[in-house]
């Protein structure tokens, strides 16, 4: 069985600058090949500007890609027209970080959740009737834990956590196969975040969903993801089963990222790998391995040749000349 979604050397470059001062190329996503298997949760992690959100948007063709291919359920959708994409749209949905910005404040919650049901027809072209829509709204609100009364109210009447439930209900309205969630819990307070993470996990299990879960919070990703891809400056530096990657990282960047997370407990002594400096600009990434300027184990080779992703023999791949052995 083929992967539900596959990217092949996918790139998204932006031209920045002006005619006066000259144009430069920002490589937001630079040649990423990965597969998202049916029923899995792939976590995309990395620091701001690493391209994780851009990659998530490219996967759904919400952002036009520069080069490479995207295959959805075996079909090449990289250059498909909007018309050809339309029948596939119900199968791929997105949940965004800003739960307020993604809901029209002037429409009732019921209408917002029903919108995809009104826009998209059944597979045979038949429109959904109002009775069918009302029934589905009932199911959806139950599914995400919203009271029926919520459907008559407006987005501003809800807290951030409840609004994210509304967004999830809308994303699930058409029973998608794939949901790309871009930092869906980052704006929520911790006590609410746990509720929404649990909801994502419950829905994935009961509906057999596939998620691409974009987040910067490693502990949230560990909780929900089956596999994790770690990104740095537009490229995947390590990808593999969540427990393998997060417990015994092979790439020095993954190791540094994990060690930098402050843990909410005392008495746990972890060795902090402090990286010097900031992430270099994706306009002029370093030569060779992109991470060599900040890498504690960089050697001469690293500034010359860019390492490719290699199988580490434990189901995980890492792009490093000198992977950490555990």
């Amino acid at each position: 069985m083929s992967a539900l979604l596959e990217t092949r050397t996918l790139s998204k470059h932006y031209r920045i600058g002006s005619a006066l001062r000259g144009y430069r190329t920002l490589r937001a996503v630079d040649g990423i090949s990965l597969q998202v298997e049916r029923g899995e949760v792939l976590g995309l992690v990395g620091e701001s500007g690493c391209g994780k959100s851009t990659l998530g948007r490219c996967m759904l063709r919400l952002t036009e890609i520069t080069a490479g291919e995207i295959l959805f359920d075996g079909r090449d959708i990289s250059r498909a027209s909007d018309k050809r994409l339309r029948p596939l749209r119900p199968r791929m949905q997105m949940v965004f970080q800003d739960s307020y910005a993604s809901l029209n404040p002037r429409r009732r919650v019921g209408d917002l959740i029903a919108e995809p049901l009104r826009i998209h027809t059944h597979a045979d072209g038949a429109r959904r009737g109002e009775a069918e829509i009302a029934e589905r709204l009932g199911e959806l609100s139950h599914l995400v834990g919203l009271p029926q009364s919520a459907l008559q109210r407006y987005p501003h009447e809800f807290s951030g956590g409840q609004r994210q439930r509304i967004n999830i209900a809308r994303a699930l309205a058409l029973s998608p196969d794939l949901v790309v969630a871009d930092e869906p819990v980052s704006a929520l307070d911790v006590s609410i975040q746990a509720q929404i993470v649990n909801l994502f996990m419950d829905l994935q299990e009961s509906l057999g969903l596939t998620y691409v879960f974009v987040a910067h919070d490693l502990s949230v990703v560990r909780q929900i993801a089956t596999r994790v891809a770690v990104m740095y400056l537009g490229a995947v530096v390590e990808i593999g089963p969540a427990d393998t990657v997060l417990h015994s990282p092979a790439h020095p960047y993954t190791a540094a990222l994990i060690s930098a997370v402050p843990e909410p407990s005392v008495g746990v002594t972890t060795r902090r790998i402090t990286l010097s400096g900031d992430v270099p600009s994706p306009v002029s990434p370093p030569s060779g391995c992109r991470f060599h300027t900040r890498c504690p184990s960089a050697q001469a080779l690293c500034s010359m040749t860019a390492p490719a992703l290699q199988d580490m023999g434990d189901g995980r791949e890492a792009a490093c000349h000198f992977p950490l052995l555990t």
């Binding site: 807290s159 956590g161 409840q162 911790v190 006590s191 609410i192 975040q193 746990a194 509720q195 993470v197 649990n198 996990m201 490693l218 502990s219 949230v220 560990r222 909780q223 427990d243 997060l246 417990h247 994990i258 997370v261 843990e263 909410p264 746990v268």
Partner: peptide
């Protein structure tokens, strides 16, 4: 309610109901 980065992964996160 904070998901742990190390140790066993809870099947469900203990969460605080309401807001």
């Amino acid at each position: 309610s904070i998901p742990p980065l190390r140790g066993t992964r809870p099947r469900r996160l203990p969460s605080i109901p309401g807001a």
